[in-house]
Nucleic acid binder design. Structure first.
Lengths: 210, 210
DNA sequence: CCAACAAGTTAGTAAGCACTTACTTAAGTA
DNA sequence: TACTTAAGTAAGTGCTTACTAACTTGTTGG
């Protein structure tokens, strides 16, 4: 896909742009913006550095194109939210957990890019985080609020409650994928999700519900 | 402390080493290993670049010295664990939550360094993570296991349960400090800790315990 | 006071970086 | 086929980087 052999086909500038963005996305997520050289991107894409700069004003513009791609491509997150309508609390939380566990455990690319972006504090990282980090949080926070008003859930700060639930999931994914814990501990995602949902809904303390 | 004016005092090589490590620790945690230049470190420390290389074979050796410092300096984490002996479940969890919330919310230096280290995947990052990321996890995991055997806690994978609790806390700190959410949302740490402990022990669902 | 040595600096070097210029090549079209 | 234009490149540019060699300066014990 990336390194071509034999006769090289010419691509239209739009196609080439797209290809470069994909290659750079992959490399930036592995080594970060600063840690990736334009030479590496060119090599991996099977083109010369000059071609990159024909299509992008500078390295930062390429980074911006990646962020834009990630922001626009909602990766089914909005789709997920639609799918939740009308379901029970347990089903909703389970579906959210499974969705993110499956996504981030199998492919840490996006998570890594988001983290690099936050740490390296480029000009676009804020945009990135605001658009992509807040969707599900806002949804869940609003959902919690409704259930608290209805009396189904206890009254806490709904934003904090949402953060508690998502924190379990995202931190788990981060530690598994980025800190490499998955080499020593890797239970089925289904069980991880169920455990987190159970604890979040009923707590870990033994007892009986009325 | 860092930029000196007027007559410069000579330090012993040990003192100078220590000072350079401190300055570099701060800069690495802000801009990462790759993103920080030896020139910047020298300027911030008020010395010449050559002095750095008199005391450290190369940039990587300086990084290693920082990791070592962070690994050896347990920052009171073992102290915390000792302090927990004989307390109730709620008190233990609350104390753990408060400890890390207070620490990481007030000073994200260490957290940032750990993240950079994991992402940039230097040769020492693994060492760093194994020594500093696992202490409290192992402790809590063992504690959960005992309470599950005793029947106080429900039976889940104890490691997973510990990850759930710590995930709430660490992810919260990360999002606040590194993603900058603290500018829009910043409740007292005490309340955050209490909310997380409550949810973890009794769940968010309303009901009554017998 | 002054040698001796450690602490510190000046002024580099080679390699690597993002980025450019001036050129070549492929492919559609008249 | 021959012309035009867009796609692509080779070979640089100037700047920054980690790192060094050769020198200077402060401190201290005899």
């Amino acid at each position: 896909m990336t390194i071509k052999r034999g006769k090289k086909k010419r691509l239209s500038s739009a196609e080439r742009r797209e290809q470069i963005v994909e290659v750079a996305l992959k490399l930036f997520s592995i080594k970060g913006f600063r840690g990736t050289t334009t030479r590496e991107i060119a090599k991996e894409a099977g083109i010369s550095e000059a071609t990159i700069f024909k299509l992008f004003a500078n390295k930062k513009a390429l980074y911006k194109a990646i962020i834009d791609k990630c922001c626009s491509d909602s990766e089914g997150q909005l789709l997920l939210i639609k799918r939740l309508e009308g379901k029970s609390e347990r089903d909703i939380l389970t579906e959210i957990a499974d969705f993110f566990l499956e996504r981030y455990l199998n492919d840490p690319t996006f998570g890594r890019l988001l983290l690099f972006s936050a740490l390296e504090a480029g000009d676009f990282s804020e945009l990135f985080i605001r658009t992509r980090g807040v969707e599900i949080l806002d949804y869940l926070s609003g959902y919690m609020k409704r259930l608290m008003k209805k009396g189904t859930f206890k009254r806490y700060d709904p934003h904090l409650a949402a953060r508690a639930f998502l924190g379990m999931i995202f931190h788990y994914c981060m530690v598994q994928g980025i800190f490499g814990f998955n080499r020593f501990f890797n239970p089925p995602a289904r069980i991880v999700g169920k455990t987190f949902v159970d604890i979040f809904l009923e707590g870990i303390k033994k007892g009986e519900w009325i």
